[in-house]
Design a binder for these strands. Structure first.
Lengths: 339, 339
DNA sequence: TTGAAAGCGCTAACAT
DNA sequence: ATGTTAGCGCTTTCAA
């Protein structure tokens, strides 16, 4: 009853088919979609009716070939399974979609060369990129940007559009918090070497600690993972520190698991602070952490990119997102301090 | 010193340019890339040299237009921020990439119509789909599959390729476990109505509970979220149940948070079990849960799709992934039972 | 307001 | 082993 079982030939309906059905030329059909204001409204209507009667969907490849515009953007991340990224990806997908773009996802697995492959492969079919925490060297990023506009997240390259989560606010508060609680020595569990965020965090922490007269020991970790955090507890314990600040919440969670395994109580015996606030209060005890608002970063990045694409003008905007300390249960007065 | 600063005209180099430089025809250049075995090795070499001297990168749109093949696949999920999906997406991205496909990501935000939009928009530029936990009705999925091969995850549609995580093993064990501990009444916090997983879980739980003589009360929840779980504790408490099984770990985590807020101890006062094992031991207490291996599901789905694409033959494979109970700390003997 | 014609960059018969 | 030719589906001058 509902209607006509048209020949839904799974093979694509073209503009020519519509033209035939609607009794107009192919250019008219094309215009009905791209510049309907140039046409007689009645003609537009006829075309549209014919179009969805036939189940027409545009062939983006053909359109792209003709116009040079693909209607796609790409977002590439080092590890989509790292909880920092999904909210970010989600926002750029949502905003891009609303603006009519489809989005490619690239996961570089934290390795720069894979990222290079992805971006060069993708650059042939996207309008622009959001590169979140890229591991690529600056030169290759600049090259990419020369071909297609790039918006960076957590990477600060002069002249490119970027959104930066500034850890210093949160880290200042963390250091002050720890200091107030009587801690005098803290270990920082680092992230990947290529990570801008890690470099920022190291530096901000060093500055804040210097001011507060806190001792900070940096322990290298590489790929941020729960297992990495777990395996780091030996070193942490050996350092004599009473507090640890981890590169991110996932690592912090691993540290807590490792500590628990050894029967060491958090926060009684040792305080721990994470970064990114990706685990909410889902740990035990609830993790004190530094906010990171990855969804907000995704919004900002998407807006930047879409702005560039619609205006056609590059941007060297540098938007900065402040952080703060979220105090939960894993920090408390140091036991072993005060001799 | 390193060399020649060629005219890297960010505007694309074409096969014609290479042909001119290498002194061959355009078809020869094309063949040098797609079927080099048909050419004189020396010719191939000359072409390749010219190609990367000019910085050539293939125009996928043009290639797609000509061949009908895009070299892209799409994976669509209801919510990339739900921790079940990232590992899955990651595996399909990795395997697809290895097979030479780029991957589109679609996030339907749990809404069927958005999913429909995404898939129809994407179907014009992909070779095939992985639909993870689709919210679409069967008819629309079949239509999509008619146009492009679809591999389903956690959705069981006859005749389509699908990978199914079967909750019954884990749920049987969960019920037995609860029964053994003396629980007699358990509430099940449901997931989205359109979710095949939820339907399976309800049914499997009902069967297992029936066998064990356990009382199960289903409490509807809709979109699975931590907040939803938190808000459900009122109802849970009112039900008089001593245990709750949640649709997924995120919901379970919310329940635990809500319980903690009211000073109710887990597992002393009430036991809780999650699903999917996405939070590892990252909760407090560590969550007893039902395994789900989303990464494995991603592998299976990717292999299925790539198999279909390379063989050119549809598949109605139905691969099933078993689950089991992972006992951690949130389950223990019922206090309030036994009158 | 609409149509005709050319061309986007590539591949694929079909020659040679 | 290589060149010629036509055409994928769409947009876009240019004419009418």
């Amino acid at each position: 009853m509902t209607g006509n079982n048209r020949k839904t030939t799974s093979t694509s309906v073209t503009i020519g088919d519509i033209a035939r059905v609607a009794g107009v030329s192919r250019s008219t059909v094309s215009r009905a979609f791209s510049r309907p204001e140039l046409l007689n409204p009645e003609t537009v209507r006829r075309v549209k009716v014919a179009a969805d009667e036939l189940g027409y969907v545009v062939n983006h490849a053909a359109r792209a070939l003709s116009t040079g515009r693909f209607g796609n953007v790409a977002v590439v991340v080092p590890d989509i399974a790292n909880p920092f990224f999904p909210p970010l990806v989600r926002r750029v997908q949502t905003l891009a979609d609303a603006a009519g773009y489809a989005v490619f996802l690239g996961d570089s697995d934290e390795i720069a060369d894979r990222e290079a492959n992805l971006t060069s492969r993708l650059s042939a079919q996207v309008e622009g990129f959001v590169l979140a925490s890229p591991r690529l060297d600056e030169e290759r990023i600049r090259e990419l940007d020369a071909a297609r506009p790039v918006v960076l997240v957590n990477r600060d390259i002069d002249g490119l559009a970027r959104v930066l989560i500034d850890p210093s606010g949160g880290l200042d508060e963390a250091v002050a918090h720890l200091h107030r609680l009587g801690h005098t020595r803290v270990v920082y569990l680092s992230g990947p070497r290529e990570s801008w965020s890690d470099q920022q965090r190291r530096a901000a922490l060093a500055r804040a600690a210097e001011r507060a007269g806190l001792d900070v020991i940096v322990q290298e970790l590489g790929r941020p993972s729960s297992a990495g955090g777990r395996d780091a507890v030996g070193g942490i314990l050996a350092s004599g520190a009473t507090a640890v600040i981890a590169f991110d919440d996932v690592v912090a969670q691993g540290v807590m698991a490792g500590l628990a395994l050894r029967g060491i109580d958090v926060p009684h015996d040792i305080s721990v602070i994470g970064c990114d606030d990706t685990l909410a209060s889902g740990t035990h005890p609830a993790l004190t952490t530094i906010s990171a608002a990855s969804a907000a970063a995704g919004d900002a990045a998407a807006e930047l990119l879409l702005g560039i694409l619609s205006s056609g003008e590059r941007s060297d905007a540098r938007v900065t997102i402040a952080t703060h300390l979220v105090i939960r249960a894993t920090t408390e007065a140091a036991r072993t301090s005060g001799a």
